[in-house]
Design a protein around this nucleic acid. Structure first.
Length: 1016
RNA sequence: GGGCCACUAGCUCAGUUGGUUAGAGCACAGUCCUGAUAAGACUGGGGUCUCUGGUUCGAGUCCAGAGUGGCCCA
């Protein structure tokens, strides 16, 4: 007779099973069907944040992908239509750097000499260098995403959508050319991204620390209005660690609300912050006056170096903007004191030297105060003009400038300082903060919109919303989105060589239709250098040439909602037809300023809409010591190692349940192993147990149907099950798979350690009575429901269980668990009172075992009475309800309720208590109890022999025994019981058959020989 | 230097709106149970809930400050 269910081995190899299931999914196109079969359902939009395939995927890629997967699988099973388009990020500096490394390049000159066309061709190859690995990895971790139709940011159609978006912003007046401060490597000749800068901070950098005297004009001295000082020269004392920036000084900043002192030394007066006098070794005794910072504001001082005398241009900010205008040479040039909120009273002199061409704060001050702008350093870090330090590298110029100022009597003090300073991560050259031209998106013009729309987004964890992300939006600055690089979406801005006017192009056809369009050579590749050759004629008749910049690759990925569909050139209903915005995205926290921002900014500016409604923001993965994983620390865990050993499901389960998604989490092989032992195996064993016995009894769930059971145990676990389903559903709806998973763990523990443990005998009874069927029904129901609950989490394990538990008996059911629907809770069977009763039983049993253990009496030995002290008389009813469970579990003949503590403290009772309950067991063993205990001992010995002899569970046997009189008595008295328990058709008091399996024991000091043999 | 998050047993984590004696798993030691179990139960050792103040009748929980770690920004 064929078995209903496929036998389930407890010695399962999960990784092996997963490989098989992958084959099934692939051949039957289960992923495709999981989408298409829900086509009529409500759409649930997911956006995939594109990775770059130029390196091997790591564990941090696993975590974001499995969190994306668990939600989209859940929604699919809820009946939503959830297409999932993959994506690849293919542009940007990281790609270029990888290629530069490969080619051994160290500067942009190397690239240009090599040829932009060849270089970009290399980049194009590089971005899919590990495509095979990525595809295999995605498959193996069961991240269901459509990679065949993935969007690719370097495709013409994708780029064209980006051009369209930029053009729309351009038309809305949101794109402009301005200046910005960039961390610049003078040796590599390029700006570094903030990410690169962060890599290169050196903690113990020694730099000069110089205090410079800036001479006030006579007019300003009289404006201070302190007559005693009128005859003497007066200097403002300012501090800097970068003397090379001093020729670029165009202002001094003070704190208007602070007090400043005038101190006399050597016949002149120095002004510095009152608070900092001591650190400046300025004697309070020589103080000749005090003045507010406010009254310093507006005073004029003489430039250290008048740029006009050294052949350097002097520019000036147009008020409030980052545009600069060249200023005429003047006979007399004075700079003035401004007020600023960044003036520190902790170090320096309380007066800050401002060089708007260098440094963020200086630049911003330059903009708001419409200051002069003097750029006396070239991009190679060398001083220009005709100073006596011209041609020197800035760091070498420091000393010469300091000497020069000293010679002119303008140096007050010179020491050194040890601080943290950024260096180029590639070549260790000190970085310079350098103001350069750049193209901007005027996000600040829509700042309120960015902030308001953020309120519509559900952030998990929610503190990101008004915390890290909200702060970032509050401090929004215009997006400097151009890059002086090669491999990227080209900036679609053309400039007239003749009249200098700009034009933005929003698509290929638009470009082609321009008058005098030329440079087009067959197929257009919208990359440099080909796109650089496309020109047309300006209205003025001049030649329009593209600006050479490419754009920030964050713009590429942030524009994916439309660019993946080539909107608006194709799919022009995209914005209104339900495919925008996303219902859900999920990435790690570093994307706050990356993808989360670029998506949000672009859709806010283009469509005045959020780009995503719900976002899970993951913490980073750390090693088992809590340290960041990095190649240099050699603590990187390879996902493959884990998967080969424990399988994808165990790894996924660990990632979901170990800690809430927002927290950084530790990861190691051992922790996944724990998941295996603690969750996967017990569940698998329950499943295996069910199948083993169901097959013996030829149980078929379809024939029996899941009826409403009467047994309390069944009703209890079904109550727990439905409660679980309800709560897991609400956890999922709140984007909290971690809580959902932990709940399932608790349920499985209840199922295994109470339901199955307490129900074992029901499955073992030989009669096929109603209770037994009810038990099978209940357990089958639990396991089948679990398979669907677990499907989003552990898709393989769930599939294996579902195939066997459902499809073996019902070929009409959906062919995969991932095509089935998510369980629905039947809240009518949730019985909280019953749950509380069983909770009580579990607790009392725990105390009972403890009491027995302390008395040294094993469970096999029956005892007469268990006395329980409850919290309240009302609990007695609860206790009665589960009394039978307690009797069996603790192997006692009766349970009594004690009314007070004294009753418990009678003789012969062994006590155990927790903070709510107390129990006592009567430890007196009568001869009858002893006999029964011995009988159970004999049963256990025979069972062990059966197992050692490798008999099947259902095999019937003959048992032989030889023993003393006491054991013979027990054997006689319990013959029926022993026979039934051990499936012994015959028990013979004789020497064991030689062909059988036998052993000698001592039971409580009584010598016994036992033998077993299979019955033919 | 600024912001966000975290800090509970050796390790990984729970701990609801403040309320008896702060819990679980792993690991360690011992005992027990078991024809589902690679498991489970019990006992034991192991806690200044990072620290210092404050609010309160009462603080792991709320507030302030400090420390350590992580991330982000400078």
């Amino acid at each position: 007779m064929g078995q209903v269910f496929k036998p389930v081995d407890t010695r399962i190899s999960f990784p092996g099973q997963e490989e098989e299931i992958l084959g099934f999914w692939k051949s039957e196109k289960i992923f495709e069907k999981s989408i298409s079969s829900r086509k009529g359902g409500e759409r649930f939009v997911f956006y995939e944040g594109p990775p770059t395939a130029n390196g091997n995927p790591g564990i941090h890629h696993v975590i974001s992908r499995v969190f994306k997967d668990v939600i989209t699988r859940y929604k699919s099973m809820q009946g939503y239509y959830v297409p999932r388009i993959g994506g690849w990020d293919t542009h940007g500096l990281p790609v270029e750097l990888e290629v530069e490394k490969e080619l051994g390049f160290t500067s942009k000159t190397d690239i240009e000499n090599y040829g932009i066309d060849r270089f970009n061709a290399k980049c194009r190859e590089s971005v899919f260098k590990y495509l095979k690995e990525w595809n295999a990895f995605t498959d193996r971790i069961a991240f269901w995403v459509d990679l065949d139709n993935a969007y690719i940011t370097m495709k013409n159609s994708y780029i064209e959508s980006c051009w369209w978006a930029i053009k729309k912003m351009w038309d809305d007046g949101l794109v402009y050319k301005g200046y910005k401060t960039a961390a610049h490597c003078p040796r590599c000749g390029t700006s570094l991204s903030s990410h690169e800068v962060a890599q290169g901070y050196e903690e113990n950098t020694v730099d000069p620390s110089v205090y410079i005297k800036f001479k006030l004009t006579p007019d300003s001295i009289s404006r201070i209005g302190i007559t005693e000082i009128a005859e003497k020269p007066v200097y403002l004392l300012a501090w800097t660690t970068t003397p090379w920036t001093l020729p670029g000084n165009t202002a001094l900043a003070v704190d208007a609300s602070a007090r400043y002192a005038l101190v006399e030394i050597d016949g002149y007066i120095i002004i510095a912050a009152q608070k900092l006098l001591a650190t400046l070794e300025l004697s309070d005794a020589r103080k000749t006056g005090e003045i507010s910072g406010q009254s310093l504001v507006g005073l004029d001082y003489e430039p250290l170096y008048n740029p006009h005398e050294f052949g350097v241009d002097r520019m000036r900010f147009k008020a409030g903007s980052s545009e600069l205008e060249k200023q005429p040479e003047t006979d007399k040039l004075n700079y003035h004191v401004i007020s600023a909120d960044f003036v520190s009273m902790d170090d320096g002199s309380g007066i800050v030297h401002i060089a708007p061409a260098f440094g963020e704060a200086d630049f911003e001050a330059g903009k708001t105060e419409a200051l002069d702008f003097v750029q006396h350093v070239d991009l190679g870090g060398k001083i220009i003009g005709n100073y006596n330090f011209t041609g020197f590298f800035v760091k070498d110029a420091d000393k010469i400038i300091t000497r020069d100022l000293d010679d002119r009597g303008l140096l007050y003090r010179e020491t050194t300082i040890t601080h943290t300073y950024p260096f180029c991560w590639r070549c260790s050259t000190p970085l310079l903060y350098y103001v350069k031209q750049s193209w901007y998106i005027r996000t600040t013009a829509r700042k309120d919109c960015l902030i308001d729309l953020n309120q519509e987004i559900n952030w998990y964890p929610d503190h990101i919303k008004n915390g890290r992300f909200g702060d970032w939006l509050q401090n929004n600055v215009d997006w400097a989105f151009s890059r002086e690089r090669y491999w990227g979406t080209p900036l679609p801005v053309w400039c007239c060589e003749k009249c200098g006017s700009f034009d933005c192009i929003g698509g290929i056809e638009e470009l082609k239709s321009k008058p005098g369009f030329s440079g087009f050579d067959g197929e257009i590749d919208l990359h440099r250098p080909y796109v650089d050759n496309l020109t047309y004629t300006c209205k003025c008749g001049g030649l329009m040439r593209r600006q050479t910049e490419v754009i920030d690759c964050w713009f590429d990925s942030g524009n994916m909602p439309i660019a993946q569909y080539h909107y608006p050139f194709d799919n022009n209903t995209l914005i209104s037809d339900g495919r925008f915005p996303a219902d859900f995205i999920c990435e790690a926290i570093d994307q706050t300023r990356g993808w989360f921002y670029s998506l949000h900014a672009i859709s806010s500016l283009l469509f005045n809409s959020v780009a995503y409604r719900n976002v899970i923001c993951l913490g980073h993965i750390l090693d088992e010591k809590g340290e960041k994983m990095s190649k240099s620390r050699k603590n990187v865990v390879q996902p493959k190692v884990i998967i080969d050993k424990y399988g994808t499901d165990a790894m996924r389960w660990y990632l979901y349940t170990a800690s809430p998604p927002g927290q950084p989490r530790r990861f190691s092989e051992g922790l996944v192993g724990e998941v295996m032992r603690q969750f996967m195996l017990p569940l698998w064993n329950v499943y295996s147990f069910f199948v083993t016995y169901a097959n013996i009894d030829n149980y078929n769930p379809v024939k029996s149907g899941h009826t409403s059971p009467v047994a309390e145990l069944d009703r209890w676990i079904l109550s727990e099950l439905n409660d679980l389903v309800a709560k897991v559903t609400s956890d999922f709806d709140g984007y909290d798979p971690t809580s959902a998973g932990r709940r399932i763990e608790a349920f499985v523990s209840n199922l295994s350690n109470w339901y199955v443990r307490r129900s074992r005998r029901r499955f073992w009874k030989s009669e096929n009575d109603e209770d037994k069927i009810a038990a099978y029904d209940t357990l089958h129901n639990c396991l089948e429901t679990l398979s669907r609950l677990l499907a989003p989490f552990t898709p393989f394990l769930a599939e294996a269980m579902y195939q066997n538990l459902v499809l073996s008996v019902n070929p009409q059911a959906p062919e995969s668990v991932h095509l089935a629907s998510f369980p629905q809770a039947d809240t009518t069977v949730i019985d909280n009172e019953l749950a509380a009763s069983v909770q009580l039983a579990i607790r009392i049993c725990s105390l009972g075992r403890s009491a027995r253990s302390q008395a040294g009496i094993k469970i096999r030995q029956p005892l007469s009475t268990l006395t329980v002290l409850l919290q309240s008389p009302g609990e007695e009813e609860r206790l009665n309800r589960v009394k039978d469970q307690i009797l069996e579990e603790l192997n006692v003949k009766q349970v009594k309720v004690a009314l007070n503590r004294e009753e418990l403290e009678k003789e012969g009772l062994n006590l155990s208590s927790d903070n709510l309950y107390a129990v006592g067991v009567d430890t007196r063993i009568t001869r009858e109890l002893e006999s029964e205990g011995l009988a159970r001992e004999i049963v256990r010995r025979i069972q062990t022999l059966r197992r050692q002899a490798d008999f099947d569970i259902a095999d019937h046997i003959v048992t032989w025994f030889q023993a003393d009189q006491r054991i013979e008595e027990v054997m006689e008295e319990y013959r029926v019981y022993i026979s039934r328990e051990t499936l012994s058709d015959n028990i013979v008091n004789a020497e064991p058959d030689e062909q059988g399996y036998s052993e000698n024991f001592k039971l409580d000091g009584h010598p016994v020989v036992l033998g077993v043999k299979k019955q033919d």
